[in-house]
Every structure is written in C-alpha cells, then in structure tokens.
Design a protein around this nucleic acid. Structure first.
Lengths: 340, 340
DNA sequence: ACAACATGCGAAAACGATTTCGTGTTAATA
DNA sequence: TATTAACACGAAATCGTTTTCGCATGTTGT
C-alpha cells in the first residue's frame, strides 16, 4: 500500500521523454507542445506528483524556512509572538523552525549554528537570559556576517547591527507609573528582575523618570529585585514587611500576581488600599481576582512585524546594509487592580 | 565583511585536491594520508567549514526535521507538549517545524501537504477541532500511506493507523468525579464542550461512570455544553440559575475558572459550599483564588514520549507495520477549590 | 530550391555533499 | 625480474530539480 513519492525521473521514464521536458511541461513552458504537456500534466496529476522541497532548496539556495530562537515557549508573551510569526510567515509560504534556548547561552549558540548551515533563510530571535548576562553576541555577528538576515525582538541588544522590534519599555514603565501617580499614589513599589535584562532596565528607567517628573522621590527600599523565574514567596513577603507602599508596579505578570496574593493575605484590599499594575498581558492578569491592570506588549503584532521585516530582507535582492528598529507603543489595559 | 559559507569545492580548488579527497579527509577516512588530512582539516577549521544541511538531506533522504501540527500555540497544554517535543528532539539532533492549524481543517491539510514533500522525516500532531468535527482523516492516511511516520497526541482518532499518545481521559474524568463524591458531594455539575472532541467525550464518560458506580444518578440538566473557545459568561450564569450543584467538574481549565468566578459572585464559598475541579493544569489553576484543583495532563511528558516514538520509527530501518498507543495516567492535583 | 527561421525536445551542468570504483605509484614478495 | 599488494587519491554517479544551450525536424519566404 506504500505509494512512495514520485519524481521527475519516474515520469520521464514512464512517458519516454526527458527529465527536462517533464520539468518544463509541468511549468507550462511554451517550449513544449500542447499535447506533450497535457500528457505529462495528466500523468503528474494522476500520480499526485509534488516537487521535492529539499531539491528545490538546494537548487535555489532558498529554504523558505525561518528559524525562531526563543528562551522559552511555555510563556504567554513568547507564544503570542510565535503565533504572529507563524501567521505572517504562512501567508508568505514560509515554515517556522522553533528552537528553545531555555535561557542558556550555549543552547542558543548551538541552535543557531545548527540552523545556519543552510536550514533556514533567516532568524528571528529574543536573547536568552544568559546571553544578556554575558553580553556575548559573537554568535549573532557570526550569522549576520554570513549574510543571513536576523531580526531581534523584545530582548535585544544594540551591540549587534540588525533589524529589531521592541515595545517602548521605558515609556511603558512611565505610563504605568504615571497611572498610579494620577490615582494619587505616593509610595509606589517596583518589583523587578536582576539588572541584566534590557527590558527590565528600561521599564525601571521609566518608573524612575515618572516619579521624578512628578516630584516624587525614588527610594531604593521600594524596589525589590527578584531572580527571574524563581518566584520567592518569602522575599516578597519580607519586602512587604519592610515597606508599606500604596501601589505596586511589577515588570512582569507573575511577580504582580504574587504580590497581589501576598498583600491580600495580609488583609490589604486591592485596589482600595493598594493598586497593582503588571506587565505582559496574559491570561493570569485577565483572570486574577481582582483582574490585573497590565501593560500589553502586543506580542502577536510584534511577531508579525518581525516576520515581515525578516521576509522582506530575505527577498530583497540587494544587500541592504541599513537596519531599522521598530518601536511599538505599549498599551495600558485598565482592569480592577487599579482605580478608574 | 561578508564571509560566505565555504564548500567542499572551494577547499578542493584551493588545496588542489579533489572534492572526494576533501570529503574523506574531513571524515578522517583511513584512505587519505596523514599529511593531506591534516592540511585539509586545518584549512577547513580556519575557514570554519560546516557541511550544508540541505545537500546532506538530499543525499540521505533524511532531513532531521520533524513537523509538529497543532491547533494553537497560545494554549498552555500545547506549549508544554511542544517543549517536551523540542527537548527530546534536540537531544537526538532533530529540529522542530511548527505549523498551526488554528483549529481549521483546511490549514491542517495544507500544512501537512507542504511539509510532506520532503521537508520533514515525520509528523507529530493533534487534530484540529474542525477535523474532529468533520471526521475526515484522509490527509493523515495520505501521509502514512507515503511511509511518513506519524504520531498523534491528545486529540487522536482510531480511524487512522499510527502511533498515539494520550492520557486516559475517561479515567481522569472518573478520578475527578470520584474525588468529589468522596468529599460527600451529591449534585455534581459537568461543564463540557461540544461532543465531537474525543477528549471531552471520554472525560464525560468517566464522569458518568463514576456517578453510576457510586449510586448517583446522571442528570442531563447538570451538564452544560459550551462551544469551545467561546466562553459565554451568560450561559454559565443561566446554568447556575437553573441548577444548584454542590460541586463542579470542568473538562478544561478556563470553564472551571469561569464557573468559579460566577459562583463566587453569587456569594458561594469555594470550596466550602461548592467544590470545583478543572482539567489542564496550567498557570490559571495554580494562581486562581482559591487555586483550582485540577487534572494534570502531563503535557511535557506527552511531548517527549511522542517525539521518542516518532524518532524511533524514523530511525528503525524496517517498515514496522505495528502501531502502539501509549496511555498516560492522569494525576489529580489537589488545591484549594476542593476539600482535603 | 535554398536560406532562414520557428518548433519541440534532449543533453548536460549546476546546487553541495557522499560513496563506489578505478587507477597510478610504490613497496613487498615470490 | 615479474607479480602482487598496499597506499593515496580522483572520476563519476547519485539525490531531485532547474535552466541553458544545442540540435534535429519542419515550415516559410524568395
């Protein structure tokens, strides 16, 4: 019952013509006579001939694949970006190869090297935590140096020349903080990650700026740095033993949810006593109780734009040595953890 | 500054040897003299030679890519499966191409046809809603008929001969229901999807069975069918106007969370008045308030097993016409929406 | 009737690698 | 000295396409 794939050679042999003739006939070339074309096309349809992608890739030096390297996939923001990438890529006939760096520098390097040997036409990626920490970007330069287009999103670096898509994280931090200030909050705590994340740094900066612009002082005691991905309930608890903010800004969703839980357990009413704003507008924020006011990062749109920039670079013949950075506007989604 | 990829031909020309010699030298063939090998290897290292994956794929008729076709990626369960697949695949040197069917039959078909033309060595997939509804599996048979290995997970069908990985959904439904019964609950409501989802059917069946086994009657009025992906707050609300259960079993996470919200808003205490159990142990369940007792589906493990089964089929030389279905044991994660 | 041209098709190179087989040189053996 | 074996390497086929070029035919024009 095994119907193995048929090739041009098979058709040629069967119909007693040359491979070239078959190839041309299937492309409806003017060079081939009407009847020969009809005969060949009928035969091809009958046996469900489909050209072999690999052979075409080798010939064209184009795979129609794009490589996506992200730190994690079980993460709402990255999955929305993935969806955006896949969606756009699909409309352009590209397939998406995903590799997970798992926040590891080495895996990131290995995955990129693997894919760079002809498997893909371009990369879309977001830096792993370790890479941001080490600030070692030679593997990216390696790839761009070979003429492979690269688009960075979200976790980017300006030490590599390539296209980028980000949201304006500083503005986002600013907006969120401003919202809290406008509510009348005076003592706004910041829950953030360690410093080497570019996005956190920018969000923190927006927070600082908003405070200063509005005559509030920046008190280091009101800033809690937590290790990424390692939500330490105790640290959060200790923090709220020591400071009594009337609002909390969290640079991600999960810290915000945690803070809310801790504060609620201590008898604080959200948002009456304390307002909370988080980042990454995911399911948690939407379904928390109360629902969490958040900064939306527009992941899907970011993915679509990244894919669009990449595919355009891939398909533009000329070696375009100019790179652009698209900056998306963050949006504040007001819910029930702040006062309207 | 463009360092284009170097090929065997380049090395051969440069060192004035034949391509065959270069190829053999780089594989450390005994056939080539020590000094020639050293010269070639040194040169290759210097210019960072890496073989072209596409060329090797064409030659070997092996791409070392596996195609994953899933309905959605912004969905906790599927992302955990993806992670499992990627993890295992990576250890075996395979890359993962993801395609999203978006719950659409047509997209599923198109994506599979695309990939089946040489781009991948095998498929891992979960059926789209539309495919389950239409019960049309010819595209799957098409693929298996060409000798391409296929592993179905979670949303499977027994109308296609291939390997499968599922959790025992009926047992899961049974376990969850039993837990509620053991708590002393008598009127257990079931929130489920439309009938064509194989997983929902099985879970419902487990629910029925548990009730009957324990001398409780199955009352259709206590079963609410909601359209998938379209959480109709009003329907849920109406439902609880009409029946007053003392426990709720939901076949997914989101319906469970919704039910909890609706019930809480009506002044019901969870779990004192009403216990709730959901499926798909995701973030929502973990961070809900109270946290939601759930059936864990072990997505990552499912992905790893699927990948393992697939790669084994791919790499086993002999055409193995026997297929197996691995059934994972569901686990009840007890949290605060039920009574311990 | 002969050049000029159009028509329809095939041979062969190319993409980048692997692998089988053959061959020329040297060294060892009878 | 003649035969053989070991050694080191190259030619060529192959994977499945695409594409350029060349070559027979047959047709047209003068």
């Amino acid at each position: 019952m095994l119907k193995k794939k048929i090739t041009l050679k098979h058709i040629a042999r069967e119909l007693e013509v040359s491979i070239s003739t078959v190839s041309k006939a299937l492309k409806n070339s003017e060079e081939i006579s009407r009847e020969t074309k009809e005969k060949i096309q009928a035969f091809a349809k009958l046996y469900n001939y489909k050209p072999n992608n690999i052979a075409i890739s080798l010939k064209n030096k184009r795979t129609k694949n794009i490589g996506v390297v992200i730190p994690d996939i079980v993460h709402h923001f990255f999955t929305t970006v993935m969806r955006g990438i896949e969606k756009y890529a699909n409309t352009k006939g590209y397939n998406v190869i995903v590799c997970l760096s798992d926040e590891s520098f080495d895996k990131e390097v290995i995955n990129m090297e693997m894919l760079a040997n002809g498997s893909i036409d371009g990369f879309i990626m977001s830096l792993s935590a370790e890479t941001e920490k080490k600030a070692d970007y030679n593997h990216l330069r390696e790839v761009t140096g070979q003429g492979i287009p690269l688009v960075l999103f979200d976790r980017v670096t300006n030490e590599v020349d390539c296209d980028k898509v980000v949201i304006d994280d500083q503005l986002a931090g600013y907006l969120a903080t401003k919202k809290l200030i406008d509510e009348g909050r005076k003592k706004i705590a910041l829950l953030t990650t360690e410093d080497y994340f570019s996005v956190s740094r920018n969000r923190n900066e927006g927070y600082r700026k908003a405070l200063l612009d509005n005559g509030l002082e920046v008190d280091k005691n009101y800033v809690l740095q937590l290790p990424y991905m390692d939500i330490d309930e105790k640290a959060v608890s200790n923090f709220f033993d020591q400071v009594k903010p009337d609002a909390v800004l969290s640079v991600n969703e999960i810290f915000g949810i945690h803070a809310m839980r801790v504060l609620q357990n201590r008898g604080n009413k959200i948002p009456q006593d304390i307002s909370i704003i988080g980042f990454t507008d995911g399911l948690l924020a939407k379904y928390a109780n109360p629902s969490l006011t958040s900064i939306a990062q527009h992941g899907q749109q970011m993915g679509e734009i990244a894919a669009e920039m990449l595919i355009q670079k891939i398909e533009s013949e000329k070696e375009d040595e100019t790179y652009q950075t698209k900056i998306l506007e963050p949006t504040l989604i007001e819910r029930d953890s702040t006062i309207n």
